[in-house]
Write a protein that binds this DNA or RNA. Structure first.
Length: 275
DNA sequence: AATGTCTCCAACCGCCCGCAC
DNA sequence: TGTGCGGGCGGTTGGAGACAT
């Protein structure tokens, strides 16, 4: 197993920064290790960084005794060993923040990660790909499509807000789209005599697979919209498309590319800081 | 119990940019 | 100005474990 992760390189650069001569090392045919890090390697890296500080990752790789390249050392430190790195489930607040920030910045993972203390760009990227993109696939739509963005905006995010509020007993400032959404759905329903099933607020259960969000069944119509079942979704998407959300949301203040106001973003960041 | 499939995520890869020389 | 290097970033891969058959 290990052998498949190994590759040979010659180290010919100057090694004066760690007291080794180039000659000494170039004589060694250094075998650089790849793959999962061991406890011993973690200890070596932590000890080295605690003495010399972060940065100069190629020097770390050369001087710490690790048979890893600089990039690998940097990644291991940033994603795992660095103090205050948080592991484990992404919280509801964090999910909400990720959805909002992604709507603003797109796949700028490192920029998004800056707003989530202790989380790494890699973790957020993985969350997005394994949860959000997965949901888009099950809905048979592109993750960047308007349909999916509407699903996020009108179903996923409101459910997150509700769950955050019910779990914390704290009200998120009321100038977000959710309160407007409730009024808008009501008005839309009265105008059109129908309601987009995704926009219904009476949701009786949740998917067990993901923390949030999509309605399992809709008690009003006794019709099951199991959103984890892509076979059903294929046809319902076409039906949902007949609801023209765009002019509707513009007329009700839903326009614009961002899901949240800066005030709400600040509120969320405060909540995260309190965790 | 054995085998196949799926999911998650740690780690790697390639590209890009800024800086020093 | 051109070149090489270090570091950062986003995309992708592949292994381990969970789950289904």
């Amino acid at each position: 197993m290990d052998s498949m992760y190994k590759t040979s390189i010659h180290v010919t650069r100057s090694l004066s920064d760690c007291g080794l001569s180039a000659t000494n090392v170039s004589e060694q045919d250094m075998v650089m290790k790849k793959g999962p890090w061991t406890e011993d390697e973690d200890t070596l890296l932590m000890n080295y960084v605690s003495v010399h500080g972060e940065g100069h990752w190629n020097s770390v790789a050369r001087c710490s005794g690790l048979k890893r390249n600089g990039k690998s050392c940097r990644l291991r430190w940033l994603n795992y060993l660095r103090p205050n790195v948080r592991h484990g489930n992404i919280t509801l607040q964090e999910q909400l923040l990720i959805l909002d920030l992604h709507s603003r910045w797109g796949n700028r993972w490192s920029k998004i990660a800056e707003q989530l203390p202790g989380r790494t760009d890699n973790e957020i990227k993985n969350y997005w790909r394994t949860r959000v993109v997965k949901q888009a696939k099950q809905l048979k739509c592109d993750v960047n499509s308007k349909q999916f963005r509407d699903t996020l905006r009108f179903v996923w995010i409101p459910r997150l807000i509700e769950r955050i509020q019910s779990s914390s007993g704290t009200a998120i400032p009321n100038n977000n789209s959710y309160g407007q959404r409730q009024t808008a759905i009501k008005a839309h329903s009265e105008t059109c005599g129908t309601t987009n099933p995704l926009m219904l607020s009476e949701v009786s259960s949740y998917s067990s697979e993901v923390d949030v969000l999509l309605p399992h069944s809709l008690s009003e119509s006794n019709v099951s919209y199991d959103l984890m079942d892509s076979a059903e979704l294929g046809s319902t998407w076409q039906e949902w498309n007949c609801y023209d959300i765009q002019p509707f949301e513009q007329s009700n203040g839903f326009g614009g590319s961002e899901l949240w106001t800066d005030e709400n973003l600040y509120f969320l960041q405060q909540q995260l800081a309190d965790l």
